[in-house]
């Protein structure tokens, strides 16, 4: 099978299925009682965790590609990014539909009053235009440069997502700090590449 066909017919569907793994695992937890005594809270946390993880995986694509020369990874970046949005969306849906049961007044007062929810909502709002403009059509319409500039918003969204998690935790902040460290490394690599003298323009595109 030619390489291009392999990517399209085998690798992409395989990675797509892999990215759906957390949904399958969730389904198993739900039917086996694995969500515990407070399944709504468990659901919201579960999809929040995976949203953040996929966001970090998406942000790791370019560094991995550049450092290890895995050029092929670029082919899956959009899919991984959209899965990040998918899980973040499920996280938000769980909060609005299950936790608050569409009590929009309560949701709004949460957004306004609770800092960690304010931060989380801003992060989500940042991800919406990125998901919408992820298509080839939008890439053309915006032009490569502006599209790329717009999509750098993902760095800010990543930072806010980690802050959102950190602020939510009551006492043991080890877990959010692990995410913060990974995000920090991924962003630091980009800053480092930027500041490095005489980097060919071609390579900067990947940033």
């Amino acid at each position: 099978m030619p390489r291009e066909k392999m990517i399209r017919k085998v690798a992409k569907p395989a990675i797509f299925a892999l990215c759906l793994g957390p949904v399958a695992w969730y389904a198993w937890l739900a039917v086996s009682g694995g969500l515990g005594a407070n399944p709504i809270e468990a659901t919201t946390r579960y999809f929040g965790d995976w949203g953040l993880r996929f966001l970090l995986i998406a942000l790791a694509v370019t560094p991995l590609r550049e450092i290890f020369g895995f050029g092929i990874l670029a082919r899956f970046r959009r899919m991984i990014g959209l899965f990040a949005f998918f899980y973040v969306f499920l996280h938000l849906t769980s909060y609005v539909a299950l936790d608050q049961f569409f009590d929009m007044a309560a949701v709004w007062s949460d957004i306004v009053k609770r800092n960690f929810i304010t931060v989380g909502m801003i992060a989500f709002a940042m991800l919406v235009p990125l998901a919408v403009t992820s298509t080839k059509g939008w890439m053309k319409r915006l032009g490569g440069k502006s599209w790329q500039r717009l999509h750098r918003v993902v760095y800010a969204a990543g930072v806010l997502a980690v802050v959102h998690f950190y602020m939510m935790v009551k006492a043991d902040v080890r877990e959010p700090l692990v995410y913060a460290a990974i995000l920090g490394a991924l962003l630091a690599w980009r800053v480092f590449m930027r500041l490095k003298p005489r980097v060919p323009v071609k390579r900067l595109r990947g940033l």
């Binding site: 709504i40 809270e41 049961f101 309560a106 009053k113 609770r114 800092n115």
Partner: peptide, 19 residues
């Protein structure tokens, strides 16, 4: 009196769906 991170107006009784 709200907790800064949660509204205290409602609660979820464990085992129930609606607050």
């Amino acid at each position: 009196v709200d907790h800064p991170r949660w509204s205290q107006a409602k609660e979820r009784r464990i085992g129930e769906f609606f607050k």
